[in-house]
Design a protein around this nucleic acid. Structure first.
Length: 777
DNA sequence: CAGTGAGCGAGCTTCCGCTTGACTT
């Protein structure tokens, strides 16, 4: 029998701690929360002071059973869940669910997984902080009330199966509003003037110097006038200004900053980062990856220091303590850092190695000295004009932390990176110009969110927690509110002016802009739901709602307020909104009238239908003519908010009848899988370059014939005795098709040599397809 | 797999935060 049972949240943590504590301690894990509100019948008795009804979560039954047995045998049970609201609640639920006596329960906490921290914790146990637990219960119950009262309103007023919640609805709102800012954005253009000067040094060696004019011109005429003045101007250095500057390293990683940097530097998605980090954590290479703390243990700071001195010398070391600035941080863990700072790399997959290296560099850099720079600004006056050119350069005098790590940024500004060292120059030097060019540049619209920049925004607002950032991104996409995709950019013309042979030459060039990769776009349903919620549940949709209720939860944690009182205060006005909305609110479908079809004189509108966004031609309920309206689904990438009348009318042109081929109709249309040609009940996808609205009969036949040829090649073997049995060539190589089912060939089979008996044998021996319990759709 | 959009009614959906695997593609 073990004297001491220690329960932590994570199994990897349990393993580490067990080593520190020795044989008198058995360390087990609860795998997070073990109980939650009952889902059926709400799980909260609102009439009865919001009494929660907790049940053991389905997938925790065996864990709880095991822990219960161990707890019964142990003399002392140490509840060592995290030191935050959720951790305290886990400890309390454990005590309740495992039925542990108060006098044999000890509550302990530690912020870092080091031997000292753990031994110290064992020396100073406390009891469960019921106020903190109550703050968690209030949080949990409030989220249930919001989610389970508002979602059904959406089912009735918008569409079944939709969801709303304190976090997800606000996340969608951010994306919807950003998209509308982008739609409303009107770019302005201005002419930026850049010059390349030739500078000669003492020995007559020539170097180029790029400089930009201190002013942008609003019109082409102004830019032209300036360039004309330049033709006969002299260019003289009027100022050389040198200023020292410094840069400071960024704090070590939290979950949110790790997700951002892994996205920018390694191109990882938010969930990819988390699963790679999880593996590093389980291998013992890094500390816990779900944290909002930037704190490093003194042990880590010391090993980082000696590593830095060993690698780069004393000058590069500067120990620092970082403070968390993000709203609502609970700081139960350390920052994310290598377990052993001295390990520059670890074994594992390529991804694991790259993420580890990123974490190692960031952690090490955070304990290094500032980089010292010298910024040089050179002003060059133009004899015939009042404007002047400015060249800037930056020289690193001492690299400090930049030796290992440089943080990236999200901005899409075109000219990153300053020029490095400038050629030596002094006041009154006269410069010759190589080129002077005025280029029309357009203002930038607000950027769309990436997964990582959305996480950053949410964290800034105190919305969501490190353990939920990745799931939030998944949820809003699974609910169909948001899509992550690439979109092609558009082409636009811009004007350039340059000096050539003593005159100003004008050219019109083309550029692509607005190309998006892996960005978050709202869907129509996302926009409609957001509008509906904004109109009827402004309280929940307020960006400050979470911050406000967090303040309330804090007063509960401090013992200044009763948790049921806080909930009652919230629930009263909230529930009234629910009832009023159910009563008075119209069904929301985002309907928008686009105009009238000139041919038929009928109205054209768009809205969200049962199966998604659609365009409608004509009106319903015309009893006299008994004429039903025409419907057409919107195509991917179209939105009911931005579609034009012409685009909508185009949708009704499909399916198009192209004529007869082999006495059967050839039609072209757009289906769920894109544009296709249909002939004799067979479908052939159109090429990317084909437009279903204009594709010709000849081209359609070409596609049909190509498909036939391909199908012929797809059949490797048929059997006279059994027409339903065929050996086919598919996307993943040869396979057997038999009675509508497909069977893969055992490795090393030569498809050409298969005979009837071989095939039947493979079919017979094929493993039963496994049962799947897919939740989605 | 290449559609749908009338209307009725039964039965279902849904939240946020802690944790990992066990599942697909």
């Amino acid at each position: 029998m073990t004297e001491n049972l220690v329960i932590v949240e994570s199994p990897a943590k349990a393993k580490t701690i067990e080593k520190f504590l020795g044989k008198d301690f058995l360390v087990k894990s609860s795998f997070g929360h073990i109980r939650d509100l009952e889902k059926k019948e709400f799980g909260v008795d609102i009439e009865n002071n919001f009494k929660p009804n907790y049940i053991i979560s389905y997938d925790k039954k065996s864990v709880v059973k095991e822990l219960k047995g161990l707890a019964k045998e142990a003399k002392t049970v140490w509840l060592a869940s995290d030191e935050d609201r959720e951790g305290e609640a886990i400890a309390w639920h454990l005590q309740e669910a495992l039925n542990i006596d108060d006098n044999k329960t000890r509550r302990i906490v530690f912020h870092e997984i080091t031997k000292n921290a753990i031994l110290e914790a064992i020396q100073s146990p406390r009891s469960i902080d019921k106020n903190l637990v109550n703050a968690q219960q209030a949080r949990r119950i409030l989220d249930r009330l919001v989610g389970f009262e508002v979602s059904p309103v959406l089912w009735k007023k918008v569409k079944p199966q939709l969801s709303a919640g304190r976090v997800q609805s606000v996340a969608v709102r951010l994306i919807v509003e950003r998209e509308r800012e982008i739609t409303a954005f009107v770019p302005t253009s201005a002419f930026r003037v850049q010059a390349v000067f030739i500078v000669a040094d003492d020995k007559g060696k020539l170097t180029k110097l790029k400089a930009e004019l201190n002013k942008r011109f609003k019109t082409k005429e102004e830019a032209q006038a300036f360039l004309e003045k330049c033709i006969n101007s002299e260019f003289e250095v009027s100022d050389v200004i040198k200023k020292p500057a410094k840069r400071t390293p960024a704090a070590p990683f939290t979950t949110s900053t790790l997700q951002q940097e892994a996205s920018r530097k390694l191109g990882f998605s938010v969930s990819q980062t988390m699963s790679v980090a999880q593996r590093l954590y389980e291998s013992g290479y890094i500390t816990y990856m779900r944290t909002d703390s930037v704190n490093l243990s003194s042990l880590a700071i010391n090993t980082a220091k000696s590593k830095i001195i060993q690698l780069f010398g004393d000058d590069y070391s500067q120990t620092r303590k970082y403070k968390t600035s993000s709203k609502g941080a609970q700081e139960a863990h350390e920052a994310i850092r290598p377990t052993y700072m001295e390990n520059e790399s670890v074994s594992g997959s390529k991804q694991e190695q790259r993420l580890y290296e990123l974490i190692w560099k960031r952690s090490l850099a955070s304990q290094m000295s500032d980089a010292k720079l010298e910024k040089t600004t050179i002003n060059i006056k133009v004899s015939n004009a009042s404007e002047f050119f400015v060249a800037t350069g930056e020289v690193i005098k001492f690299d400090g932390f930049l030796k290992v790590y440089m943080e990236s940024t999200d901005d899409e500004e075109e000219n990153h990176g300053e020029a490095g060292l400038l050629p030596p120059m002094k006041k009154n030097d006269i410069l010759k110009h190589e080129t002077i060019e005025a280029v029309e540049r357009f203002s930038l619209r607000p950027p769309r969110y990436t997964e990582a920049s959305l996480v950053k925004k949410l964290e800034e607002q105190g919305i969501g927690r490190p353990s939920t950032y990745a799931p939030i991104i998944t949820t809003v996409q699974n609910r169909g509110y948001v899509v992550k995709e690439d979109r092609p950019g558009e082409e636009r013309a811009f004007t350039t002016l340059s000096i050539a042979n003593g005159t100003v030459k004008e050219e019109v060039k083309k550029e692509n802009y607005g190309t998006e990769k892996s960005k978050l776009f709202p869907t129509d349903i996302g926009s409609v739901v957001t509008d509906f919620l904004m109109k009827n549940f402004d309280m929940i949709m307020d960006y400050n709602f979470t911050a406000k209720v967090e303040e309330q939860f804090d007063t509960i944690a401090e013992g200044k307020q009763e948790w049921n009182k806080i909930l009652a205060d919230f629930y009263k006005p909230f529930h009234k909104q629910v009832e009023t909305t159910l009563e008075v609110s119209e069904k929301a479908n985002g309907e928008r009238l686009l105009g009238t079809d000139e041919k038929t004189g009928k109205p054209v509108s768009v809205k969200i239908g049962r199966y998604g966004p659609l365009a409608q031609l004509g009106e319903t309920g015309d009893a006299e003519t008994d004429e039903k309206p025409k419907f057409a689904s919107l195509q991917p990438g179209m939105s009911i908010e931005t579609i034009s009348l012409e685009q909508a009318l185009d949708l009704f042109k499909l399916p198009r009848d192209l004529g007869d081929y082999e006495e059967k109709k050839v039609t072209v249309a757009v289906g769920r899988f894109g544009p296709y040609v249909r002939h004799d009940n067979k479908f052939v996808s159109l090429d990317k370059s084909d437009d279903p609205l204009t594709v010709t009969f000849e081209r359609a036949i070409e596609l049909i014939e190509a498909k036939r040829e391909k199908d012929r090649k797809a059949v490797i073997k048929t059997f006279d005795d059994e027409p339903e049995l065929r050996v086919l060539n598919g996307r993943w190589g040869p396979y057997i098709a038999f009675k509508k089912k497909n069977y893969k060939l055992p490795k090393g089979t030569n498809a050409e040599e298969l005979d009837f008996d071989n095939c039947m044998k493979i079919i017979k021996e094929a493993p039963e397809p496994r049962k799947t319990k897919r939740k989605k759709k």
